[in-house]
Simulated scan of single mutants.
Amino acid sequence: MHMTTQTTTHSTRLDFVKTAPKVFRALIGFDAAAREGLDPALVELIQIRASHLNHCAYCLHMHTNDARKAGESEDRLHMVAVWREARHFFTPKEQSALALTEAVTLVAGAGVPDAVYTEAASHFDDQELAQVLSLIFTINTWNRLALSTGKVAGTDDRRG
C-alpha cells in the first residue's frame, strides 16, 4: 500500500514563540536547568539520538551543527544512529546515556527497562542521572514542538 504524506509549509503553522511566550520561556528555562553540570558532548549526543528517533530534522540539524562547533568528530556524529554497532566510538557512560535516551524517547514501546536504568545509574550519580533524564525530557519536548509547528531544517531561528 502506498501512503502519501502531505507537507505543510512553515507559514501555515502557528508561531509558538509569539503565541505562547510564557510556555516557551519556561521550556528554555527547563532546558537550561537540565544541562547544568553535564558534559556538553554528552548533551549533544543525547539530543542527536532523540532527534533521530523522533525524525526531527530541524533539531537534528541544529544539534549536529552545535556538536561540530563544540569539537565533536564527524566519525562520532555519523555513528550516533548506530551506536550499538559502533560501540568503540563511545564510552560506556555515553552508551548508557544513549540507551536511556532511546528507552525514554520510545517509552510507549516497552517502558524503561530495569537493565537500561540500572546501567545508566551505574555511570551517573543520582544528580547526574536526574540531569540526563531531564535533558531527555526537554529534547523530546523540543522535537515535538518543532514537528508540530512545521519547523524546517536549516532555517535561521533556533527553537520553537
Rank of each mutant, 00 (worst) to 15 (best):
L106S: 08
L129S: 07
A67T: 00
H52G: 05
M62C: 06
A110Q: 14
C59G: 09
Q131A: 13
L14M: 14
L60S: 01
T149Y: 07
A70P: 03
A86F: 06
P21Q: 01
T101L: 09
T101E: 03
L60M: 05
L60F: 03
T101S: 11
A57F: 06
S73C: 10
T19D: 04
E119A: 13
E44V: 00
A32E: 13
I48Q: 04
T12I: 04
A57S: 14
T64G: 00
I139Q: 04
V23D: 03
A34D: 02
S51L: 00
F24R: 10
T12W: 01
Q127E: 15
V112Y: 02
T64L: 08
S51M: 00
S134N: 12
T138H: 07
L27D: 03
T118V: 13
V23C: 11
S134A: 14
R35P: 02
Q131S: 13
D31Q: 15
M1Y: 03
E85H: 13
C59I: 08
T105I: 06
F124S: 04
A115N: 05
L133R: 13
G109S: 15
G154T: 05
G160K: 06
R76M: 06
G111Y: 10
A41M: 13
M1P: 07
L135A: 06
R159T: 08
Q47P: 01
T19V: 08
A67K: 00
M3L: 13
D156K: 13
T7N: 11
L133S: 15
Q47I: 07
A50M: 05
D125R: 13
P92M: 12
V82I: 09
L133Q: 15
M62N: 12
I28N: 13
